[in-house]
């Protein structure tokens, strides 16, 4: 009964693995030419485009940890303070939905509302007497805009796990704190946050596993030539040199470089997990 999944997994997961060797070969559409050792790596490490994509990639990751990662924690804590059950439920319903909508559609929505002449945002700016801004043509703005869109799309869904953790905190702790005269802020600081500390840590460690990924689709659909200098990331770069320009070996080399970095992070996550969790859990 395991045979079908075993065969499929072997074909699409394990058979491609030796293909990584292409990173050390000269392989084109016409076929295999010769082994070249580390020449492909030397070549890409001398390309400015590669380092641009590499740097941009880290800008997006950095912004992810500064803004996107904490956003559902704050969202969940604030939402937990809402007293009205109906309001809470409504906010949760609305904010979780975008997670299931594909990035293409989300990009379509944002390109529409940010359009320089016909977009809602620019209507508002013009109504207030300002000049229209073509938001998606500004390279410096793009990483932040992208971060905002990611929060817009994912904050509600990511908050679910924190909301679940919050509902697990013993209400007696709050009652005791109120009797001791702690206000809401103090309660948040000394009961709520320590109560979900474990969940935050687990999510933080797990996030390392996909640190280099998750950018292809959103960037690919939002990218345009005007913002390429800050929007190109490793994944879109691999697609570009590999499938558009058909330089298979170079693209595989960039992919391997990316995988090695990811793997280092996964290993680091595992070490952290063992060090920091009480029962010395490994994440595998």
């Amino acid at each position: 009964m395991i045979a079908p999944v075993f065969i499929l997994c072997t074909i699409f997961h394990y058979i491609p693995l030796p293909g990584i060797a292409l990173a050390f070969a000269d392989f084109r559409i016409s076929g295999f030419k010769e082994w070249v050792g580390f020449k492909n790596f030397q070549y890409i490490f001398n390309l400015n485009f590669f380092w641009d994509a590499f740097r941009n990639n880290w800008v997006f990751i950095l912004l992810r940890y500064i803004f996107i990662f904490p956003s559902p924690v704050i969202f969940a804590i604030l939402l937990n303070e809402i007293r009205s059950k109906i309001f809470k439920k409504a906010i949760q319903t609305i904010s979780t939905l975008p997670h299931f909508i594909s990035w293409v559609v989300i990009a379509g929505i944002f390109i529409s509302i940010l359009s320089p002449k016909t977009g809602y945002v620019n209507y508002a700016i013009q109504a207030l007497g300002g000049k229209p801004i073509y938001f998606l043509s500004k390279p410096k703005l793009f990483p932040f805009l992208f971060t905002l869109m990611s929060i817009w799309k994912e904050v509600g869904y990511s908050a679910i796990i924190y909301l679940a953790a919050l509902s697990g905190i013993d209400p007696e702790l709050y009652e005791a704190a109120i009797i001791d005269g702690a206000n809401r802020w103090k309660q948040t600081l000394y009961i709520t946050l320590p109560g979900i500390k474990g969940t935050i840590l687990v999510m933080f460690i797990l996030s390392f596993a996909g640190i280099m990924g998750g950018l292809f689709e959103p960037i690919f659909v939002l990218k345009n030539p005007m913002i390429e200098e800050t929007a190109e990331v490793l994944d879109t770069y691999i697609y570009d040199i590999g499938l558009v320009k058909a330089k298979y070996s170079l693209a595989t080399a960039v992919g391997l470089f990316k995988s090695v970095i990811s793997l280092v992070f996964v290993m680091a996550a595992n070490v952290f997990s063992k060090l920091l969790t009480e029962d010395k859990k490994s994440i595998f």
Binding site: I2, V5, F6, C9, I11, F12, H13, I15, P16, L17, P18, G19, I20, L22, A209, I238, Y239, G242, L243, Y248, A251, T252, G255, L256, K258, S259, L263, V266, F284
Partner: peptide
């Protein structure tokens, strides 16, 4: 073995875009 083969290892390693493309 099957748990590692089907669940855990695929999360850690992948051939990447081009090798998978070539298999397909």
């Amino acid at each position: 073995f099957f748990i590692y083969y089907l669940v855990i290892l695929p999360m850690l390693f992948s051939g990447g875009l081009i090798p998978t493309y070539l298999v397909v």
